[in-house]
């Protein structure tokens, strides 16, 4: 039981947090811009390398340098929207989807060009001892930080979307873009905010993964599929659904390799990603509209 919590549950929640933060962006972009943003994983990588670059200059805990990564990801996302996606806005969305594949390749190549293709480890001041609770639970501090940060972000995002003018405008555009136009809402401002939030959260998610393992140019691309699974599972266009979807996918992946029966892993960890998709498909058969359809947020 202790092993279960230490080695499966908490790592599951941690990777779930990463998926949740990435999936929120994917879900919001889909809800407001109506296209599947396949460059989202690589946007995550860009944000991560932004922190890595800052960490090379300022020797403090990389988590404190996350604003640099967020800023880089936001600037890059807004620029890409202006140059690549905005001119395609009036065309069928498939053009933008394909274009986002191209953007993903550009991001990955630029990261390789500037920072090289090898794995890079964050220098976080040596090995950090795990958090020991009641002499039995040994939990990575980073995992706790990831879960807590995601929880705070979820609360803040909920507040932003339900109480602020910009947040409500975002939900209105997501709900019905034509009516939003008739209501005189500034849809381009809503689009900008979608990129700002999506990119910022992607950078945070990327940093957690990179600090947990290492930073490499394929970091975000490798996470793209489970993040999409999470966004679809939550009911695409529903940020809070995407958050829940992220945790379900993350937990399903980790818990599937626990030795539920006998001493062997139930499913080999190599099949983790497949598990994510089986869970997604199974839940969508039961609930095709996603978990959060019809809910407010």
């Amino acid at each position: 039981m202790i092993d279960f919590i230490n080695f499966y549950l908490f790592p599951g929640l941690a990777i779930g947090s990463v998926y949740a933060l990435g999936a929120v962006g994917i879900s919001m972009i889909f809800g407001i811009l109506r296209f599947a943003h396949f460059a989202h994983g690589d946007l995550m990588t860009v944000g991560t390398y932004g922190v890595l670059a800052a960490a090379g200059i300022i020797a403090i805990n990389p988590l404190l340098l996350v604003p640099f990564g967020m800023a880089l990801a936001i600037v890059v996302a807004l620029l890409v929207d202006k140059v690549f996606y905005q001119p395609l806005r009036t065309l069928p969305t498939i053009y933008t989807v394909i274009s986002s594949f191209g953007v993903a390749l550009i991001f990955r190549s630029l990261v390789q060009m500037f920072w090289g293709s090898q794995n890079q480890v964050f220098n976080s001041g040596g090995v950090r001892p795990p958090l020991v609770l009641f002499d039995t639970f040994r939990i990575s501090v980073l995992h706790v930080q990831a879960v807590l940060a995601t929880a705070c972000i979820a609360v803040a995002l909920h507040f932003f979307l339900s109480r602020t003018r910009t947040g409500r405008s975002m939900r209105a555009v997501s709900d019905d873009p034509e009516l939003a136009e008739v209501s005189g809402l500034d849809t381009e401002k809503v689009v900008r905010w979608t990129w700002i939030i999506g990119a910022a959260l992607a950078a945070i998610a990327g940093l957690f993964v990179a600090m947990d393992t290492s930073a490499h140019p394929n970091l975000g691309w490798n996470l793209l599929m489970p993040m999409f699974a999470a966004a679809i599972l939550g009911g695409i266009g529903k940020p809070m659904g995407a958050m829940a979807g992220g945790y379900i996918i993350g937990l399903a992946e980790e818990l599937s390799s626990y030795h539920w029966i006998g001493n062997e892993a139930l499913i080999s960890p190599s099949y983790k990603t497949a598990v994510a998709f089986v869970v997604m498909i199974a839940l969508l058969i039961v609930r095709p509209q996603g978990l959060f359809k019809g809910r407010l947020l």
């Binding site: 409500r168 209105a172 709900d175 019905d176 034509e178 009516l179 939003a180 209501s183 809910r295």
Partner: peptide, 27 residues
């Protein structure tokens, strides 16, 4: 000036109060 379309004239996932509030954003 403001307008009400024939169909799909409310934000279905927003509450009534939020629908009214959205009406104030442009002006």
């Amino acid at each position: 000036m403001s307008a009400v379309p024939q169909s799909r004239n409310v934000f279905r996932n927003l509450t009534v109060d939020e629908n009214l509030d959205v009406g104030t954003y442009a002006a």
